[in-house]
């Protein structure tokens, strides 16, 4: 342990001062650790020597950033830079705005309206009435658009059907043409064998 009491005033001898700093600094860190363990405390310790050297200790349960953040909240003193302060202020502003918007939405949902006076109730009623008109108009637009699409598709289908019929008729006409040529070309030779085939073709056309 110590060897005699010393006066608590600046140590003038530079060498002695450095030695004392080193010993006492370590003792301070040791005691900081002890109180952390014994008492569930959170401690942040930063020491700068007169020569600019630094030693720091932060308890294991919380990092220094979180410690300092909590310090700011509890002490009211700001340690961080302007950009952090600005971001923090902006967050507060958005929170307030969200609270305000939340309340407005609740009114538009018919909630929490007991506290509204007659004038405000009429304003909300008017807003909802106006909104309802727009919603219905929009639904009508969608339905009209849908019906128009259906008509267009029906028209297109009709045209396609017509074209198909035209093509079928053209094919049928070609078939008759071919049959006639065949008949002419083989007149003298094939009169008897063609007759049953002719019957079949006529029946087929009638069915079509």
């Amino acid at each position: 342990m110590g060897r005699g009491k010393i006066e608590i005033k600046r140590i003038e001898n530079a060498n002695n001062r450095v030695v004392t700093f080193s010993k006492r600094r370590n003792g301070l860190v040791k005691k900081a650790k002890e109180i952390t363990v014994l008492c569930d405390a959170k401690v942040a310790l930063i020491i700068f020597a007169s020569n600019g050297k630094m030693i720091d200790y932060c308890c294991p349960s919380m990092d220094l950033g979180a410690m300092l953040d909590q310090y700011q909240k509890l002490s009211g003193k700001k340690l961080w830079d302007a950009k952090h302060e600005n971001l923090s202020n902006e967050i507060d502003r958005i929170k307030k705005e969200n609270d305000s918007l939340q309340l407005e939405l609740r009114h538009l949902k018919g909630e929490d309206i007991q506290s509204l006076n007659l004038k405000n109730l009429m304003a909300v009623e008017h807003a909802i009435e106006h909104g309802l008109d727009k919603v219905r108009d929009h639904q009508m637009e969608i339905l009209i658009s849908k019906r128009r699409n259906e008509k267009m598709m029906a028209e297109e289908q009709r045209q396609l059907t017509f074209q198909l019929q035209q093509q079928e008729m053209a094919i049928a006409s070609n078939a008759r043409g071919m049959m006639m040529r065949d008949h002419d070309g083989q007149f003298g030779y094939r009169v008897q064998p063609i007759q049953p085939n002719l019957q079949e073709k006529i029946m087929s056309l009638v069915i079509d």
Partner: peptide, 16 residues
């Protein structure tokens, strides 16, 4: 430590 050695010390503590 501050007085004896011209040190600069900051301690921040939170109780349980």
């Amino acid at each position: 430590l501050t007085v004896l050695c011209d040190a600069r010390v900051s301690i921040i503590m939170f109780s349980s």
